[in-house]
Amino acid sequence: MTALREIRADHDGRTIVLYQAYPPAIADAALAAGRFTAPFGFHRMTWIKPSFRWLMHRSNWAQKPGQTRVLAVRITREGWEEALARAVLTTAHPDEVARAEVHVQWDPERSLRGAALNHYSIQVGVGRSLVRRYAEEWVVGLTDLTPQVQRIAALVRGGQAAKAQRLLPPERPYPLPAATARRLGLG
């Protein structure tokens, strides 16, 4: 059976929440300014993920060096959909990937304990040509989730997965325009 690809996210009619993990210097500066600012890297690709559990796997529950602060980044749906409309799958021809402003890859979604599940979650790499727009136009809010991440991780380690599950951010299917969905391997 082929694994299911689906964008699941916390979203409303105007915005979507993405997750990123940073070192304290970047997170503190961003939270103080209410937007991304130096030392955030405006000249490199930044990866954004709508799956909280996938980022927890990637950052080892905010314990991986350089990824000890977890931010919920609320961006406009317009920005998110513009990024996806410009995206190329990382499995495309290398020349096409090299020219792309946005990269998309699908990775196994993760359980609360980090096990790979039988469906895939989207990871979106916003390229250098769009990073400033992402940071300065699309982002409408930043929230430090590090204390919540630490609490959930402690509950999981303590064998209280049901309590931990209740603290996860809500995620539900995110609808995309049909043409974009097909290009990204969703249809």
Rank of each mutant, 00 (worst) to 15 (best):
P177S: 07
A33Q: 10
Q165G: 00
W54E: 03
Q150V: 07
G185S: 11
Y174E: 04
R44T: 13
D28L: 04
L176F: 15
S121H: 05
G13R: 14
A83K: 00
R86S: 06
N118C: 08
L4H: 12
E136V: 06
Y120N: 09
L117V: 06
S129N: 09
L84P: 04
T91Y: 09
L117D: 02
D28T: 14
W138M: 03
V17A: 06
W47M: 04
A33N: 08
P108F: 01
A29P: 11
M1H: 13
A25V: 15
Q150A: 13
A162F: 02
H57I: 01
E78N: 06
I152W: 06
D107E: 15
S51I: 00
M45H: 07
Q165D: 13
R74A: 08
V73H: 00
L4I: 14
A98N: 13
I16V: 15
K64W: 01
P23K: 05
Y174T: 05
P108L: 01
L117E: 14
A32L: 09
E101R: 11
A154K: 11
W138D: 04
R99W: 03
P147T: 03
V149Q: 02
R99P: 04
V73L: 00
M56N: 04
R35Q: 14
A27Y: 00
L117N: 02
W47H: 05
L184T: 02
V104K: 03
E109A: 15
V17P: 00
G66R: 07
Q165T: 07
D144C: 12
V139M: 04
R69T: 02
A164K: 03
T46C: 11
A83Y: 14
Q148Y: 01
A135H: 10
L130R: 12
P24Y: 03
P173M: 05
T37M: 00
Q105N: 12
A162H: 10
Q63E: 15
L89N: 05
R69E: 05
R151F: 02
P175Q: 11
V126A: 04
R58H: 14
W54F: 12
R166K: 14
R132I: 02
R35E: 15
G13C: 10
V131G: 08
T90R: 11
A98V: 04
P24V: 08
A100L: 12
R182G: 06
Q67A: 09
V70T: 14
A161E: 15
I16D: 01
V70R: 01
S129P: 01
L186Q: 11
W47L: 05
R113Q: 12
L55Q: 13
A161D: 15
A21N: 14
M1D: 09
R74N: 08
M1C: 07
H119G: 02
P173R: 06
A100I: 10
L117C: 08
A92M: 08
L31E: 07
Q20F: 03
H93W: 05
V149W: 02
Q160G: 06
A164R: 01
R132T: 15
W138E: 01
K64I: 00
V124R: 00
E136G: 01
G185D: 11
V149L: 09
V131H: 09
I26K: 10
R44C: 02
A178R: 14
K64P: 00
N60C: 08
F42P: 11
A178G: 06
R74K: 14
F36G: 00
E136Y: 04
T146N: 04
V17C: 06
L184M: 07
R183T: 03
P169A: 11
